[in-house]
Design a protein around this nucleic acid. Structure first.
Lengths: 148, 148
DNA sequence: TATCAATTAATAATTATTATTATTTGGGAT
DNA sequence: ATCCCAAATAATAATAATTATTAATTGATA
């Protein structure tokens, strides 16, 4: 994770977006974040270095990036929106007792689902995205989750 | 869908909840609803017959019902909360161009996922729920979706 | 039927997000 | 390099969704 300035400007340019300091900073902050942050968390993370960037601009910038498919919006069981710089197809694990959202990616799972959905024929529906939402809680909130 | 008064009072009692007119009305309204309504939509649907029930009470009642696992809260890509009286395990299809949320249930899919998750061993995670979120749009917004 | 904790109505407050508007700016044209 | 202007931003107000407060009411137990 984390793209350098050149890479970020290149990505913005590839979408025809103007290269602005605000967009670079917000995008880099999200790329660097590990935790599917809220708009406010991104705002907090950048404001010491960029005190003139307003929260509304952070929202607007995230919206612009999402519209251009550079990032994803992630809705949560709490209803507040969080953001994700990962745009490859992956799933999320919602941890209720720590409020974390973890990425979960497994090629096997993706294949299984894709196969399943291909087999089914949804009439009058064009599927744009699908993912598995796993909800759970950490047994020990201070430790990570591993798959064995 | 739709439980009679006796059934609803029985369900509330089984959870140790006081039987109140408000709870009966809100619960029945949700049971009768087809569209994963918002709190406000439920409020609107009951207020002509029950003008004294306030929106805050609708929210509180829904929260109580959800805490007692009689209903589910459904978060949406828009961030607003919607409610679902179906509590059996099922999946949702989010239709972006009509803002509908459709239930999608398929035994085969449930089996596939359950098998998959059982095979995987998530360390330090207790899974409480999992579902597939399908996003898409209707080709013809005025027609339904069928599976062939 | 009296009691009292739980519930509700009415409303205020809060939180998350979006809109408004005046000002500024990136980047193409000159 | 400078001019120009649509697009972007800062500052702030407004809105939408939800939650909190508090006084009054009520369900259900004794």
């Amino acid at each position: 994770m984390g793209l350098d300035l050149e890479a970020v400007t290149g990505v913005l340019a590839s979408k025809g977006l103007k290269i602005t300091h605000q967009r670079i900073v917000v995008y880099q902050a999200l790329l660097a974040a590990k935790n599917h942050p809220t708009a406010e968390q991104i705002y907090d993370s950048i404001k010491s270095q960029n005190p003139s960037i307003s929260l509304a601009t952070v929202y607007k910038t995230l919206e612009t990036l999402a519209e251009n498919l550079l990032i994803h919006k992630v809705s949560t069981p709490q209803g507040t929106m969080r953001y994700d710089a990962r745009i490859d197809n992956h799933n999320h694990i919602y941890i209720s007792n720590t409020n974390e959202i973890l990425d979960y990616e497994d090629e096997e799972l993706s294949k299984i689902l894709l196969n399943y959905l291909k087999k089914k024929n949804f009439d009058n529906l064009s599927i744009t995205d699908f993912k598995v939402q796993i909800k759970g809680e950490k047994i020990n909130p201070d430790k990570g989750i591993s798959i064995t």
